[in-house]
Simulated assay, not measured.
Amino acid sequence: MHAFNLQPKTLNLAERLADMAVDALIDEADLSPKPALVDRRGNGAHTDLHLGLMHASALSLWPAFKEMADVAINIGEISLPLREAVGRIGREGELAMLDTTAGVNTHRGAIWALGLLVTAAALEPESTSAAAMTLRAARLALLDDRYAPRPLSHGAQVAQRFGARGAREEAQLGFPAVTQRALPQLKRSRADGHGEQNARLDALLAIMTQLVDTCVLYRAGEEGLDTMQLGAQAVLDAGGSASLAGRRRLHELDQQLIALNASPGGAADLLAACLFIDRVESGESFIQGAF
């Protein structure tokens, strides 16, 4: 059969959600210029990451996201069996990611955040507002996975040490950094005509102004966290990413965080969550799949 005669495959709900989760991760990675993060310019504050690795990692997670959506559709309700199935799939997805990246942690936090949101969207595809999805994700995150390993991640250790809110608590509260900061800023910047890339950068900065980013705390302590929060606010106060003054502030923040070896990976994970929610929420024909 001639290639031009091939008809595109109609994707089912789980496949479309997995596509959107991977797209959100790739869009986050490609977004430039992000302060001290991997982007199209370079590796930011990292020595073991690069853009191609971020893309490969994101693509490796597609089967896990699809399986999470499938199990949500099959179980059909927020319950301990669903929480434990999603936890198992997430851990298997993490192993696939680490196999792809030769052991480098590229998206561990994003697997948690996006996995919960993919599951939440699959549970009730007719109810995909940001508020509804994050509420379902929070209810699921509050359930205790009996099979989860107990050793604390770097983020959890830092959260415990500094009394900060880690990724787990952020999810259990319904992703307030996304719903209260990132999404409103994304929509404001779009409405002001700043362009999509600048609007996404502004959304990232809005997260950074208040998030107690455990990745930054782990790498640079409270000095790094203060630099991130105050610097991000300074960019927005100067007019945001679309203004010349804002771009100058953004460049200064990038240089300051790199000098401190402080990469806001937690904020990046939440930006990916924001982009996923925005994509799902704006899909007028989501149930029918007419994207």
Rank of each mutant, 00 (worst) to 15 (best):
H154Y: 02
N74R: 14
L173M: 13
P33N: 04
G193E: 08
G239H: 07
M133L: 15
I111N: 08
D27T: 15
A69I: 06
G52Q: 13
L51E: 01
L250N: 12
P35G: 05
R279C: 01
A122V: 07
L11D: 13
D23I: 04
V86Y: 03
T128G: 02
A206S: 11
E67S: 12
I78E: 07
G289M: 09
P63G: 04
A245V: 10
L114N: 11
G155C: 10
D19I: 08
Q7H: 08
L17S: 06
T209G: 05
L80H: 04
M228C: 09
L250I: 15
A242H: 14
G52H: 11
D254H: 15
D145L: 14
A58S: 15
A232K: 06
D254R: 08
I26C: 09
Q255T: 15
T119R: 00
A268D: 14
G231R: 12
G115C: 05
A29C: 07
L253M: 12
A36E: 00
D278R: 07
P184Y: 03
D202G: 15
F276L: 10
D213Y: 09
F291N: 10
A24P: 01
G283H: 14
Q160L: 08
E92S: 02
G42F: 06
L6W: 00
A69W: 00
A156S: 09
K187F: 12
L82P: 09
E170I: 06
R41C: 02
L173S: 11
G283Q: 11
A267H: 14
V216W: 04
Q210G: 13
D27R: 15
A203I: 10
A259L: 14
R188I: 13
G221A: 02
D99Y: 10
C215H: 12
R279H: 02
D254G: 07
G115S: 08
D213R: 04
D144P: 03
P33E: 08
R136E: 10
D39C: 03
A122D: 06
L253Q: 12
L31Y: 07
R40L: 08
G163T: 00
I277Q: 15
A130S: 09
P35F: 02
M68N: 04
T227G: 11
